[in-house]
Nucleic acid binder design. Structure first.
Length: 302
RNA sequence: GGCGCGGUACCCAAGUGGUAAGGGAGAGGUCUGCAAAACCUUUAUACGUCGGUUCGAUUCCGACCCGCGCCU
């Protein structure tokens, strides 16, 4: 089973309710919650919540390191198997659309990232102007170049990386298909609360994160791992960093964090709208009526 | 009370005697190993008010209103 929805929609609360009722175990699918020591800004389930139901794939990445969608998919699939073999119900919960897709549908069998190549590309792109990468890709894989915008550096880099490392066009590799998750009947529940109410909640939650010491947590992480640590550029942390570096004041940082969370929620919704076979629930996951609606719908689907 | 500066869309903000950039927000979208990332599209008969000058004013002039600063 999968519980998806934008940040602040109450995925955690809903998944706990479902897990308790259905003997479930929760598998995190939230890219930031995988990082250790990132606590306040990630809205991870609390230790009390984790005591109610078994949780998996939280706190598995060192903050100085990183995880990718492919690595996540491998680990998550393994976790799913283990839960199943125990006779329990795996409940995948999270808002990271790409990771969820990697888990359920699989990625194409492409090469892993190459840091050296990326660094070279980035450097040369800096020297030769913004359309440089796009021109390279046009030569390596014209079809891919058509579908990736010239300004979209990360996707251009990956496409070039795939072409060079595999000596095959990326669009050719795509034709070989993905490797979808097998052996599970997937039931998707999506939370779709009223947009304005969601934004209001997000604002309050970001405020609470600051009140709870997000800036202090960020200070510690900044000292320990340096400003290049990947998760420090995530929602809330990014703003806290710029506050600590004296680039903004408290109020501006908070407002920027709230804004970033709202924008993120919107992007998540456009991603999830394309997700197939989602049973949508209009409301927040910690709403009792939404929870009972979810339970009855799941019962009907099983 | 006097002087100065300002009043342009939801917000910030440029600018012009022939009806006005840009950014943000909002909305929609893309996404095949950095995704809490990155990127794309789109939306406004907005020029404080009332007069005057002019073929024509948001732009020039006057009065007034509002805000900010300074002075007495």
């Amino acid at each position: 089973m999968v519980v998806l929805g934008p940040t602040g929609s109450g995925k955690t609360a809903l998944s706990l309710a479902l897990a308790e009722r259905l003997r479930g175990e929760i598998v995190n699918c939230d890219s930031l919650a995988m990082y250790r020591e990132f606590e306040i800004g990630t809205a991870k389930p609390t230790s009390a919540e984790r005591a109610r139901v078994p949780h998996h794939l939280l706190d598995l990445v060192d903050p100085g390191s990183y995880i990718t969608a492919g690595e996540y998919a491998r680990q998550a699939r393994e976790t799913l198997q283990q839960i199943k073999s125990r006779g329990a119900l795996p409940i995948v919960v999270g808002g990271t659309g790409l990771y969820l897709r990697a888990l359920l549908e699989g990625l194409f069998p492409g090469p892993q990232r190459s840091e050296e190549l990326r660094q070279r590309l980035r450097q040369r792109a800096g020297e030769k102007g913004p359309s440089y990468l796009h021109r390279i890709l046009k030569r390596l894989d014209p079809a891919a170049a058509t579908s990736i915008h010239a300004n979209d550096t990360p996707k251009l880099v990956r496409a070039i990386e795939v072409c060079l490392a595999s000596r095959t066009k990326m669009t050719e590799m795509w034709k070989r298909g993905r490797s979808p998750l097998q052996g599970f009947r997937i039931v998707r529940l999506g939370l779709d609360p009223d947009r304005n109410a969601l934004y209001e909640r997000i604002n309050q939650r970001a405020q609470r994160m600051f009140d709870a010491g997000l800036v202090e947590e960020t200070r510690t992480l900044l000292e320990r791992y340096g400003e290049t640590a990947r998760p420090l550029s995530a929602l809330g942390y990014k703003q806290a960093v710029s506050l600590l570096q004296g680039e903004t004041d408290q109020k501006t940082a908070l407002q920027a964090a709230q804004q970033a969370h709202r924008n993120y929620a919107k992007r998540q919704m456009t991603w999830f709208r394309r997700e197939p076979d989602v049973t949508w629930l209009a409301g927040f996951g910690d709403d009792a009526s939404v929870q009972s609606e979810a339970i009855s719908k799941v019962a009907g689907l099983r």
